[in-house]
Amino acid sequence: MVTAFKDEPITNHFLDHNSQQQNEQILQINHLEIFYGEKRAVNGITLDIEKNAVTALIGPSGCGKSTFLRSINRMNDLIPGARAKGEIIYEDLNILSEDINVVALRKEIGMVFQKPNPFPKSIYENITHALKFAGIKKKSELDVIVEESLQKAALWDEVKDRLHKSALSLSGGQQQRLCIARTIAMKPTVMLLDEPSSALDPISNAKVEDLIVDLKKDYSIIIVTHNMQQASRISDKTAFFLSGDLIEYDATEKIFTNPSVKKTEEYISGRFG
């Protein structure tokens, strides 16, 4: 039954199913396949991502959800031998296309990683680093953006007195919020979060979760998570991946209360994965 989802008629079923809500779509993914060398990691996935919503990708390790996520801002380009087939449509452009300027793309589709990875620079410079490269040089302008993005990331109050201290002096949770802040500073439209709180303690985790819910007003968020509770708490839509296939994609509430596919139910109730 897994293979059945690769066929076109059934993928259309997803679209029909969601049509009641008719929300605006920010990304349309059609028959996306991703290969590492000869090995196929993602098997022809079709799904749409809603604007200003949190979409959670769940599934056991190695199911292809992170690979899928990384293909949306072409981070997979960095992996030798990785290639993608199919389409990811963003603003009427296929972003997998050869003539996409990945640098400009990544400004609009930002990414936050599993492990907090601030630059070994000051907190301030962490945020201004990419801004300066994008051409914003005026100190007054930078100051405003730094404060704004730290505010949005709910970090401003904790760091405003030590903006010029090393970012590495922050706690893990603060570092991760700084990473989110520096992505926000670029004013992206889509934010990709790859298990952003899995390396954090419960309190930091809760802060990051609140932040994500808060951010969806302005951004469309796709989050990969291993944590079922997290997915159910913060996401609007949930996609369940298994061995490179999309098993089920629906409103989060539906997935967690009444999934249509048995595999989903088994995974969510913790029977494997």
Partner: peptide, 21 residues
């Protein structure tokens, strides 16, 4: 690799990433 990815994911070019990160 984290650092390099962080910089690239912010829309910074490879050469600028090499130079500044």
């Amino acid at each position: 690799r984290d650092l390099k990815e962080a910089s690239l994911a912010l829309g910074i070019t490879r050469w600028h990433t090499i130079k500044t990160v």
